[in-house]
Nucleic acid binder design. Structure first.
Lengths: 182, 182
DNA sequence: CTAAAAATATTTAAGCTTAAAACATTTTTC
DNA sequence: GAAAAATGTTTTAAGCTTAAATATTTTTAG
């Protein structure tokens, strides 16, 4: 039903009808796409959560923090973590706290700046993460298998661009704000 | 850097090198895609949350429930809502409770089945939702604007297929379980 | 018909999440 | 060098979220 009008494709003088390029139609398609993005990521996240729980007694947020730390062996500040995971600052405090309790990460003071906390994986955290990461890798590979190989790269870039576009907007806003101040 | 090897495309006997089809590379690309899916949806959700809060003093989960109810004018059961939103049953209980407190939805008993609760939008809920939906529609349109029009439909289908693939797996498992029982 | 199983919804405990406020420290400004 | 601004983190209150346990009702199997 949403695909009707395809027949009028190459018929002359159909601008008024032209359903595919119609602004309202495009808007509705974007909305539908968004709902599908949401549902699909939610679906995958639900699957991952269940598996982390049953196989490792672990949670997704804790895995995400550990993955960030793994990619930053010299340690990360709380702010760095929060930006990297795109969650609030206070959120990270709680998750790191629990990881400290479990002996998976250490939180130490910065050498010169006493405001700053540096978080690193402990050796146990590293080994625990490695096990989980291997499984996680396999799960993602399985869950994303239906996506044609030839499209993976393109899709990744598309999503990246989507975020970048917003970031540019953000910069514009910040510049505008700064200008107002001057 | 991740795009090297493209040159070897049509050179004879390069199977050993052929980096693009390499199984490990594909796995890593899938992982990268997943991380990008997650970050992009999270980014958009964060934006929507902020705007719902500042413009309507509303939350995303409550909007989602109302949107589901809007699409089902005859009302929905709690289970139907929970399945539609892909969140847990108990979760819906709390959100609906708050919506009832705000006078935006009603929860009534089912005619014949006394276990079942039927949730519907109140007139006020309908009018509140309509206002929010219009803005929401515009926001999504703005945030997804960088996606080429020609790809929206295809992308939507791709994501749909991704979910459907898992659902089929699920059915297989259920059938297996049933078989064991017999 | 009735006991067992299944379905519907809520409650509970624990954890995740946010925005805003509070706090601590460092840097900048005058 | 003190006041102000900025930076880094935690705390707080409210809400979201899940899995598991519970309560109630309906359906099913015998």
């Amino acid at each position: 039903m949403t695909q009707n009008g395809a027949k009028t494709q190459s018929i002359g003088s159909v601008k008024k009808i032209a359903p595919k390029g119609d602004a309202e139609t495009v808007q509705k398609m974007r909305l539908r796409l968004w709902i599908n993005m949401l549902r699909t990521t939610r679906h995958i996240e639900n699957t991952l959560r269940e598996r982390f729980k049953s196989d490792f007694e672990a949670t997704l947020p804790r895995f995400d923090v550990m993955a960030s730390l793994f990619r930053n062996p010299d340690g990360m500040t709380m702010t760095h973590l929060s930006e990297s995971l795109m969650v609030s600052n206070g959120n990270v405090t709680g998750i790191v706290e629990r990881l400290v309790d479990e002996g998976l990460v250490n939180r130490t003071a910065h050498d010169t700046d006493r405001r700053t906390a540096i978080v690193v994986l402990t050796p146990e955290g590293l080994s625990t993460f490695s096990e989980m990461a291997e499984e996680h890798h396999a799960w993602i590979n399985e869950l994303l298998e239906p996506i044609p190989q030839g499209e993976i790269q393109h899709l990744t870039e598309l999503l990246q661009e989507l975020r970048d576009a917003q970031t540019v907007e953000l910069h514009k806003t910040r510049q505008a704000k700064r200008k107002k101040k001057d």
